[in-house]
Amino acid sequence: MINSDQSIPCPTCSTKIPFDTRQLLLGIQFVCPNCQSAIGLAIESKAIVQETMEKFEAVKSKSIN
């Protein structure tokens, strides 16, 4: 269940920046291929994203089992 084309439009140049949420949670930044701007998850939002991802994984496994 991986959404392969997850991307954020670059706030500077609108180029699509591909990303992976799990890697964002690890603190990894993703670089815009056009303008080299680096985007990452702000520390203050890490907890809510982590919690939501855990709940999402639980929903997925519940629906499969």
Partner: peptide
Amino acid sequence: EYCFTKGENNTYAPVMITMSMTKG
């Protein structure tokens, strides 16, 4: 349940998070 907050008049507002951007 988790990505939206339910407001008055059955309207849903997205839960917002903060992203950081570093640029030269």
